[in-house]
Amino acid sequence: MNSAGIIAVFMAALIFPGIILRTKSIASGRKGPGIFQPYKDISVLLKKGSIFSTTTGTIFQIAPAITLASLLCAAFFIPFGKYGALISFDGDFIFFSYIIALGRFFSIIAALDTGSSFEGMGANREAFFSMLLEPAFFILMASFAMATGYTSFTDIFINFYLSGNNFMLIFGLLGIFVFLQTAMVENCRLPVDDPKTHLELTMIHEVMILDNSGFDKALIHLGTYLKFALYGLLIFNLAVPPAWTLPVQIACFLVIQVVLAVIVGLIESFRARNKMNKNPKYILTISGVAWIAFIVILLVGERFIN
């Protein structure tokens, strides 16, 4: 049953992008595509040939594969409720965060490989913003480790609500907020980046992949869907106590994924993108919220004073 986590990630990745798309189309009064449209797009991309820039070299060719592999590898660490992850060890979330960073490293240098100033701009922003985001995840995980006394995704989530302290709920909510925001920034969604913008100067993620086509672009899209699903499942694990029975958990899982996707879709429909130079402040605020979670833990654990 340890593979429940990874199956759930793939499930979430399957429906998540479609629901966002559908929500956005409904919110803007369009008829819109079906929820599997993103995957139809991918199958179209797979049928197409590829164009490579003459400037690019090996890095550009291998980077999409490495990025996708890093995200797939990260999926091995995600548990599903009480069913632990496929690979679980103390500090697995450190590996999780760093392997995603490895994928990011390659997507950044792949963008620089094209020699395009637009893509350089995207590469720079991706590197800069994700660097600012880095502490938020670690503060949150440290607070989890402090609250539960465990240091792996599986153990943390299993023991999260076991203490019976209702204040953990506040903590859980803060955690969900941070994970959601992290997912938004990591995936370059609003309000940090607008995936549907039409001006290269204002993009982050999209501008990095201007020169990718065909198979590689399909891999990149799959990677983004997977990344969203990873965070979606982390949020699910935080929100649903593992003591609940499997059918209830599956139902909760589906509801949470749909709700999350709808929230993302609604945010994208009704919010404008931040001004680019306001983004650092916005991202650092996420770390600020994570700090609050830490303070909550100090309070809950009655660790003040001593």
Binding site: T55, A101, A123, M131, F138, S143
Partner: peptide, 29 residues
């Protein structure tokens, strides 16, 4: 926790620095 934050920030900054270094030296034209 401050040390954890510092270490993660160092990691992020190092990635920023080396994507720059590698990208500018070895990639592009």
């Amino acid at each position: 926790i401050s040390t954890i934050v510092a270490l993660s920030l160092i990691g992020g900054l190092a990635i920023f620095c080396f994507t720059k270094a590698f990208g500018i030296i070895f990639l592009g034209e």
